[in-house]
Design a protein around this nucleic acid. Structure first.
Length: 665
RNA sequence: GCUGGCGUGGCGCAAUUGGUAGCGCACCUGUCUUGUAAACAGGCGGUUGUCGGUUCGAGUCCGACCGUCAGCUCCA
């Protein structure tokens, strides 16, 4: 450009294009109003890019905060970062917000957008910021944190990522900045401590909605004050906002709690208690199929099957350490066998029994029940073990967070030399099996030691963590680090699976235990006759059957593949006269182990088709005069396509093969 | 556990300013039934989560408790 010696601004370069919300100058995100020279490398940041979305959302958060302070003059500002799909802003207000407040705030935001207030960046000293924000105690606290808060460079706050600090959006590591919202008559409407960048003016925000209110602890600490958090969503265009809202509706249709009721799979009777599910016949058959296949694979993989009780004396959990570390999460004890004298003094001491929160202590006792040889290793114990955990009332959720569950739990005892190979084959086994259930998009997370709260030697942690990392790398999957995320006694690999609509679920976990072999004094006799401490690996593959069933239900939206479907085939006669023909077909299918029903109700054919489709049955076999005469049936598939006049033996073969191959249809 | 919302027959919903509970589906009975998503008619079913209060009168108002939903915190 001929104006190479002159400076210009991003706004002059890109300001006519509303889809550009910021610029990247020599790699650094900046406001469009930034001055640049011809020597700078200047790239536009599109609203639809990841950075652009964050800028749009963070700017929307500022507009929300201004709206709140207009309507609630007493409101003190917390923080307001962008998050996945939206933003939030925390406020200290006298009275919690109501859904009505939300509507009023949305209107106020729209008014602010119409004012087209410019976002104007201003560098301030700590002292200036403190003076200006003297009425904002939380902001003052953030100023004090300056420098320590910023780790990631403006990245979206990932609620699942403990290393990401939302406060870093407010104050960076370098200079302190305040953004003024300036009206067209140059009045300053509002200002906030923020490192930006922002969209040029509020008129850029054309597609936002406030979604919910909740309480949130200041800086995420339960010991701090509870602020009121307002959540919102914001998008570059109204169409994208609508598409997002549509996605939420679609996700709600997959909610396993809803499908569990609609498909008659399970329920949570109040009389039993929160987080305690009962499985109805259709849910029961699903569980059985899941378990049967899992058992078969475990047999093939060299596991031995054990069984243990649901309750145990306090002594067991004292030894294991659970009472010491997790008593709050355990159901309280049953005090049994105590006897008293007539005067009330204790004659016989009695015992506390606890429902077990984990199976591993009992498996360790099986290991210890006799002398063990190194030749027995690796020793793999498997159990569908029911455990009970006293989850806090606010966290219980459908089948995914329950108080009573059945883990597909295994413990592998091996030598330190065997550990690496065992972990590699174990991870492969886990992934293979998950793929058979229809999940095939994974990444791994490696949770490592939290030095402040962990036991064991540095060498043990290092060795175990290296072995887990080695197994993860051997899998070829993406590995995400979760520093400090390990339990106090064990590093962990968790398998994260993405479902059909891209949500991730933590499924399997594999842990190398650095505590229980010592606590239970587990030993094997080595080749030299000496005693050796085995390594212990914990692993739950489904996690729990309940949770996995919930995840699969959402993944498939209730339309399970034939091998899992509670009812695999429904026979529908065009008229009652063809019931005998369909019963013959059903008999042939049952002989091959197929779960088939013939709808002999008084309903008409159309209604029967509707009912079977609502039940998400994989195969509808319809038969009328033409089919009966040809000893055939007509398929109606889930996609509503038809295949008519299929000879019965061909129909049986098609269904049986889909089941055997665990294909989705 | 914390904050807020919600709580009407199995499910989904309705009941003007407080005036004494209604609809659809499901279920039961009957009459129907020939080609790919809802035949027709009749019937059964609720002391409106529980307890207490205000009122001549409460599904509607107030309080406590229980349950549930969302978020926060937590998740061996």
């Amino acid at each position: 450009m001929s104006m190479s010696a002159l400076t210009t601004t991003g706004l002059e370069l890109f300001g006519t294009d509303r889809t550009v919300v910021a610029v990247r100058v020599n790699g650094t995100l900046c406001d469009l109003s930034v001055s640049v020279t011809a020597d700078d490398v200047v790239e536009p940041v599109a609203a639809s890019s990841p950075d652009g979305l964050n800028i749009v959302r963070h700017s929307a958060a500022h507009v929300l905060a201004q709206a709140v302070q207009r309507q609630h003059t007493d409101a003190k500002l917390g923080i307001g970062p962008p998050i996945t799909d939206g933003f939030y802003y925390d406020f200290d207000v006298a009275a919690p917000f109501t859904p009505d407040d939300l509507r009023r705030l949305e209107k106020e935001m729209t008014a602010i957008v119409k004012e087209r207030q410019r976002f104007v960046r201003r560098v301030v000293t700590d002292e200036e910021a403190r003076a200006e924000l003297a009425d904002e105690p939380y902001k003052l606290e953030l100023i004090g944190l300056k420098g320590s808060a910023a780790k990631d460079d403006g990245a979206v706050v990932d609620e699942a990522d403990p290393t990401s600090d939302p406060a870093s959006v407010e104050v960076g590591a370098g200079e302190l900045t305040i953004y003024d919202n300036v009206r067209r008559n140059d009045d300053v409407a509002w200002r906030d401590l923020c490192r930006g960048p922002h969209v040029p003016h509020t008129g850029y925000l054309q597609a936002f909605a406030l979604t919910r209110v909740s309480a949130a602890y200041w800086r995420g600490d339960q010991a701090n004050a509870q602020l009121q958090r307002v959540y919102g969503t914001a998008w570059p265009t109204r169409d994208e906002l609508k598409a997002y809202q549509h996605r939420l509706e679609q996700a709600a249709l997959r909610d396993h709690r809803r499908l569990g009721r609609e498909l008659d799979l399970f329920s949570f009777p109040d009389e039993i208690g929160s987080g305690l599910a009962v499985f109805h016949p259709k849910g029961g058959i699903l569980r059985k199929v899941m378990e049967d296949y899992s058992r078969q694979r475990h047999v093939e993989a060299g596991y031995e099957f054990v069984n243990t009780p649901h309750i145990a004396k306090a002594e067991l959990f004292d030894i294991s350490g659970h009472l010491g570390f997790y008593a709050d999460g355990m159901f309280p004890p049953m005090h049994l066998d105590e006897e008293r004298h007539p005067d009330g003094t204790v004659k016989r001491q009695g015992q506390d029994y606890y429902p077990k929160p984990m199976n591993c202590p009992m498996h360790c006792l099986i290991f210890r029940s006799r002398g063990r040889s190194y030749r027995e290793l690796p020793l793999r114990m498997f159990e569908f073990g029911s455990v009970y955990r006293y989850e806090m009332s606010g966290v219980v959720h459908g089948l995914t967070r329950v108080r009573g569950m059945t883990q597909d739990d295994a413990h592998i005892y091996c030598t330190p030399d065997q550990m690496q190979a065992e972990l590699i084959s174990l991870l492969q086994f886990v992934l293979d099996l998950l793929r058979d259930y229809g999940l095939d998009d994974f990444y791994l997370e490696l949770s490592t030691r939290d030095l402040d709260k962990s036991i064991g030697s540095d060498e043990d942690w290092e060795r175990a963590t290296d072995a887990l990392r080695g197994a993860a790398e051997a899998s070829g999957l993406d590995l995400v680090l979760d520093p400090g995320g390990a339990a106090f006694y064990a590093p962990k690999i968790s398998v994260q699976a993405r479902d059909a609509i891209g949500r991730t679920w933590q499924l399997s976990t594999i842990q190398v235990d650095l505590m229980l072999p010592d606590r239970f004094d587990l030993e094997v006799t080595g080749a030299d006759g000496g005693r050796q401490r085995p390594v212990m690996i914990h692993r739950a593959l489904f996690g729990s059957i309940e949770r996995f069933l919930g995840v699969l239900t959402e993944h498939y939206a209730g339309a399970f593949p034939p091998w899992l479907a509670p009812v695999q085939v429904v026979g529908i006669p065009v008229a009652d006269a063809f019931i005998p023909h369909l019963e013959q077909v059903a008999t042939a299918l049952r002989a091959s182990g197929v779960r088939v029903e013939v709808d002999v109700s008084d309903d008409r054919m159309q209604k029967k088709i509707r009912n079977a489709e609502l039940a998400k049955v994989p195969y509808l076999l319809i038969a009328g005069g033409e089919d009966a005469a040809a000893n055939a049936v007509s398929f109606r598939y889930r996609d509503r396509s038809q295949k008519n006049g299929v000879p019965v033996d061909e129909a049986v073969a098609e269904i049986v093969s889909a089941i055997a191959e665990r294909r989705q249809v």
